[in-house]
Simulated assay, not measured.
Amino acid sequence: MSSVSSTTTAVAPATTLRPRTATAAESARARWGRRFQHGGWFVAPFFVMYGLFVIVPVVRGLYLSLTDANISGDHTSFVGLANYREALKDDLVWSSLWHSVKFTMYVVPCIIVVALLMALIAHHAVHFKWLWRLCFFAPFLLPSAVVGNLWWWLFQPTNGMVNHVLGLDTPWLAQKSTAMTAVVIATLWWTVGFSFLLYLAALQNIPQHLYEAAELDGANAFKRLLHITVPNLRNITGLVLALQILASLQVFDQVVVMYQFGPGPEESTRTFVQYTLEQGFTSYRVGYASAISFILFLIIAVVALGRMWLLRNREEAAR
């Protein structure tokens, strides 16, 4: 009887293949890749142009503000925050900033009130609505040089139309007390059309049944304006206020044209932007002008962020 030896062969268990879980970084790259594939190529030209004409100049200007660069670009050395310290001690910086702030305080409330009145007229007009809209918006299409020269002629003391119509002989552009007022009037006439369009669009979105219900309850036109129109225009008024403040702080074009690139009588109309350009292109101090311009940038940024903070708090309170 022969013995049969059985050999036992050990077979290793088959390894279960599991799909590898993608990491968070890989998922993000894939997600952004899909988004770029769908729409990235359409917005890429904008980002390229934005980087070349906004980001690069801003970074370059920030670097120049830390140097003593002149307009020729020769012998530039790093000076750190010296330009900023000098700007904070410069009386002309503060006076020009005050002129810009004063102009803003004058022109912004006027634009809001006049634009709202113009929008109400164009909205409720029975005949020739297109003519009202054209007349109110047309000045906004004019170039700043045309507006400045036009109002320079209108404010002339001898043959100007303003004095002729009002029966005055006031030297509007030659005396300190009326110099800024002349700029405010010219700016109001020129720029109110943009805010007028915003208000007109907002008026057309107010539901008509609110006015009908108020009229049935006996509310007159003034009460309907006060309790229906104004509350429904709150958001657009905040937008107009923010846009006009940011634009008014940068006032430059019409001022330098009306006053022939001068600072006005007793330097009463020299604005912040004008003083910046004087330092850069008259005194040839590019580094110092860059520092001044970044101070204005910080002021505008604070205003914009403050507006966003107030809007967010208002939305949270409404919830």
Score class of each variant (00 low, 15 high):
171 P>D: 07
210 L>A: 11
182 A>R: 05
245 I>T: 04
250 Q>A: 07
284 Y>E: 09
158 T>L: 13
223 K>D: 10
269 T>Q: 03
218 G>S: 07
189 W>S: 03
213 A>G: 10
216 L>Y: 02
246 L>P: 12
197 L>E: 01
254 Q>Y: 08
198 L>G: 00
263 P>F: 08
273 V>G: 03
244 Q>K: 12
237 T>R: 11
251 V>I: 10
284 Y>N: 09
205 N>F: 07
241 L>N: 03
192 V>D: 07
231 P>H: 10
280 G>C: 09
222 F>A: 15
269 T>G: 02
226 L>Q: 15
260 Q>E: 15
237 T>N: 12
286 V>L: 15
190 W>A: 08
259 Y>Q: 08
187 T>C: 10
248 S>P: 03
208 Q>D: 13
245 I>Q: 02
181 T>G: 12
159 N>P: 14
182 A>Q: 02
210 L>G: 11
184 V>K: 05
168 L>V: 11
249 L>P: 11
216 L>N: 09
236 I>W: 04
201 A>D: 11
210 L>I: 04
230 V>H: 12
180 M>K: 07
252 F>A: 03
190 W>E: 05
215 E>Y: 12
200 L>H: 04
243 L>W: 01
158 T>N: 12
218 G>K: 01
202 A>T: 06
223 K>N: 09
211 Y>Q: 04
266 E>F: 09
220 N>W: 00
176 K>L: 15
182 A>G: 04
191 T>S: 07
176 K>V: 15
161 M>E: 12
213 A>H: 06
175 Q>H: 13
217 D>H: 08
189 W>A: 05
287 G>L: 00
220 N>L: 04
257 V>A: 10
158 T>V: 14
269 T>S: 05
272 F>Y: 08
208 Q>C: 09
253 D>A: 06
193 G>H: 01
255 V>D: 03
178 T>H: 05
226 L>E: 13
238 G>V: 00
224 R>S: 13
248 S>F: 04
218 G>V: 05
269 T>V: 13
225 L>S: 08
239 L>D: 02
160 G>F: 07
282 T>I: 14
212 E>I: 06
259 Y>R: 09
187 T>D: 15
233 L>I: 07
275 Y>I: 01
283 S>R: 12
182 A>C: 04
231 P>Y: 10
253 D>F: 01
180 M>N: 00
272 F>N: 04
219 A>P: 08
179 A>I: 09
198 L>K: 03
196 F>R: 00
280 G>L: 10
238 G>Q: 07
204 Q>S: 11
246 L>M: 11
225 L>P: 15
